[in-house]
Design a protein around this nucleic acid. Structure first.
Lengths: 138, 138
DNA sequence: CTAAAACCTAGACCGCGCGCTAGGTCAAGG
DNA sequence: CCTTGACCTAGCGCGCGGTCTAGGTTTTAG
């Protein structure tokens, strides 16, 4: 209704983050600016805040800790001039995510091998022996 | 030195898990059997326990909660006959891991796009404007 | 104008996966 | 034998990323 002013509820809906989480993020200093308030003290967000939250959400979903997002937000708030630092931070996270994917891939190999063993086992009707209490296995 | 009897310290070394973690796992019922003790009450592990721990470690590393590992361990302890249940549990986890990898991949796209933007930005010498306090961005 | 819905702050609480401490006991080398 | 280091139990504490409650105020729809 207001030209671009969004209530916390709207932002919650738009981002999928709970209103609790939004207030928590604010306390933690994750926003790029002070969120303005109405006379009565209620937060008024802009679309830009929602866009930033969307990015935060992807960073979080990929395992970036709140503290690191805060560091990044601080760099942005500090204004132009520190782009190389921001880039370094993002690159490092990118590396972390790739590493995590690799690790998951390796785990997947192990798990899938286990699955394959059980599949054969079940298909062939509980072959027994190797599958008793303590056969080095599970 | 004993024919196959491993102290908790040895197992810790062999698995990379802390002795605290090993005792914690035991309290949480993650082992496939009661770990036997010396007369003096010290745990005596076998190689099979270490092998099982290695699997647990991969399950943990891929995000399986302790409670789910316990469920799996309980099935194994219960003995032959429930292999289909074990298989279902493993398959579900495999699916979860794949889903997680997909999610990470999607995040990676977003992050790498951001990285690319910053790379160009930095390469071209702080292009300014779009990078001030609140340009829908970070 | 009123009632309901949405919002506010401060702060307690939660599940997870351990880590660490206190206060002892046990085992192996010299 | 005695020291030293590894081990034992019980149980509290912690960091993370929020959630939830209590008690009150603001906004909005009718």
């Amino acid at each position: 209704m207001n030209d671009d002013g969004l209530s916390i509820g709207k932002v919650s809906e738009a981002t999928g983050l709970s209103v609790h989480a939004l207030r928590f993020f604010e306390r933690e200093g994750l926003f790029l600016r002070e969120i303005p308030r109405t006379g009565g003290g209620q937060r008024v967000y802009a679309q830009a805040d929602v866009d930033w939250l969307a990015l935060c959400d992807r960073l979080r979903a990929s395992g970036m800790p709140i503290a690191t997002i805060r560091t990044f937000a601080e760099l942005v708030r500090r204004g132009p001039g520190n782009e190389p630092e921001r880039l370094a931070l993002l690159r490092e996270h990118e590396e972390n995510v790739r590493a995590r994917m690799d690790e998951l891939g390796a785990c997947l190999d192990v798990i899938h091998t286990k699955v394959a063993v059980y599949e054969r086992h079940v298909r062939e009707g509980t072959a027994a022996g190797v599958w008793s209490p303590m056969p080095s296995d599970g």
